[in-house]
Amino acid sequence: MQLEEIILLAKKQDRKAQTALYHQFKSGWFMICLRYCSNRADASDALQNALILIFSKIEQFDAVQGEFKSWSSKIVVNSCLMFLRKNTNRFQFNELKEDILMYEEQHTQDDVLSVEEMTKMIQELPIGYRTVFNLYVLEGYTHVEIAEILEISIGTSKSQLSKSRKLLKQKLEVVL
């Protein structure tokens, strides 16, 4: 069955079609959740919320305006942000301490990092760094947009990104 047909049926709340969509995109959606959340359990919860949003809002999807993958990814990102917002009182942008900076050498010493390892690196960033890094680097938002989304100042967004870069660089240096 073509994706268009599946989406059409999913719009009619057909459970089989929704299941088919899930199986087709679950890996990509889950990796997004893993990048935003610090552990697998949180990522699973965020994904579940994202699924509910995707299936309930799928009627709003218009194939002319873009691909389903990018549309659904945005929903997953938003769902992750909502999850983080709900489960932490507020984004803790000043939580970085020197002891966290100490990256434990627990990764493989391969020349090339796997997607899993890179995802884990991001996961291990403090929540503020992680969120800004994900939004800026991987989702392509500007600092202005990030500031608006996270309700922080542009300066904070920039500093969080800078610190996340610094931390990731340190991690990469250790690994590589």
Partner: peptide, 19 residues
């Protein structure tokens, strides 16, 4: 990071497949 994590082409594995 962008090149590796944006639209990653990875096979479903235990770590990236949800329960």
């Amino acid at each position: 990071f962008r090149s590796r994590l944006r639209n990653p082409k990875v096979e479903p594995e235990a770590w990236n497949v949800p329960d």
